[in-house]
């Protein structure tokens, strides 16, 4: 089996070369997809979904709420499981039917938002404290419930870390569907998302409901997290939400461009991540976590981008100053 994998034993550049040359073959259906390529496609689709949502959440300054939601999905899954009475030989949060999946997503999004808002508005608690309380409480409940139901003491670890190497092609279809939903929602509701994020008062004046779109965004986030966490764990989903968006923000200053380039950056990072993991396996016989590698690539890219930006600023500064001064006189 191993010898059939064309990526076995290749280094980083070899990987990229092999991948590029296999793309036309894959498209025409002339060869089978192997594990590495499956990982690339799955991670790229995840990157698309997460970074689109991440751009809006970053501009709305609600990414820590995304952190909260990514933890509370566990409770949503437990409740959905209890409600749907589906017993597939014991409970495991990684094997969900579609119905359970959707119910779990809805419940998680609703509980998190409602509880956080109740704490802030009725109980008069400051916003950051209410987010923190809600998710630690719900996640603890989730961990206790899941440990008791599945008799597996290591569930918590798997939720946080996921398992990329256990990918199957069904996951690809799942994530393709989720990505399609996210992309279409963002294309259709582009104006509404832009307006409700930038100027909520004007949006209200234009009769566009800020509440509806923030709930919609939470629902999109919920679906994306539940669909992705079994592959890479909740923390990586979070880094794909904030990372590419922050990276794109450094270079691009148009909302449209952010929505275009953040997913692109996410895809590139995923490819590099998978390639590097294969490189380390081939060259140094070190099996590493693909998820961790992608995050490391993200971190390094951001760090480099910051340095490049600082350098660029120091070159450009004099000319921009002059132009601005003459125009600001108006």
């Amino acid at each position: 089996m191993l010898s059939l994998n064309p990526y076995w034993g290749v280094n980083f550049f070899g990987f990229l070369w092999t991948f590029i040359s296999r793309i036309p073959l894959l498209i025409s259906g002339n060869c089978q997809m192997v594990q590495d390529e499956l990982q690339i496609f799955v991670l790229s689709l995840m990157a698309i979904s997460c970074s689109l949502i991440g751009v809006v959440m970053m501009l709305k300054k609600t990414t820590m709420l995304a952190n909260s939601l990514s933890h509370t999905i566990l409770v949503g899954i437990v409740i959905a499981y209890l409600l749907s009475f589906s017993s597939q030989g014991g409970f495991h949060p990684f094997s969900l039917s579609i119905k359970t999946f959707i119910i779990a997503a809805l419940i998680s999004a609703l509980i998190t938002t409602f509880l956080s808002e109740f704490l802030t508005k009725s109980l008069k608690l400051q916003e950051d404290a209410s987010i923190g309380l809600v998710f630690t409480f719900l996640f603890s409940l989730g961990i206790v419930a899941v440990t008791v139901f599945s008799r597996n003491a290591h569930i918590g670890t798997e939720v946080v870390m996921g398992n990329v190497d256990a990918l199957v092609s069904k996951d690809l279809l799942w994530l393709l569907f989720i990505a399609a939903v996210n992309i279409s929602l963002f294309i259709l509701c582009y104006k509404e998302y832009l307006l409700t994020t930038f100027d909520p008062v004007f949006a209200k004046f234009m009769k566009i409901s800020t509440t509806f779109f923030s709930y919609l965004l939470m629902l999109q986030l919920s679906i994306t997290v539940i669909g992705s966490f079994r592959i890479v764990g909740v923390i990586m989903v979070l880094s794909y939400i904030i990372g590419p968006a922050l990276l794109a923000r450094l270079f691009f200053h148009q909302f449209t461009k952010l929505l275009l380039f953040a997913p692109l950056f996410g895809i590139v990072i995923s490819i590099i991540g998978v390639a590097l993991t294969r490189h380390f396996l081939s060259m140094y016989q070190m099996p590493l976590s693909t998820a961790g590698m992608c995050i490391a690539v993200l971190a390094v890219s951001y760090f480099l981008a910051l340095i490049i930006k600082k350098r660029k600023k120091s070159w450009q500064l004099p000319s921009l100053d002059q132009q601005d001064q003459s125009e600001k006189a108006l």
């Binding site: 990414t63 922050l246 995050i295 490391a296 951001y302």
Partner: peptide, 20 residues
């Protein structure tokens, strides 16, 4: 908000890499 979220996820992710 963004800086907290970014540091949270990237540091942890790098830890994942080392742990693996």
């Amino acid at each position: 908000d963004a800086s907290l979220c970014f540091v949270l996820s990237t540091f942890f992710g790098i830890g994942l890499l080392f742990a693996s």
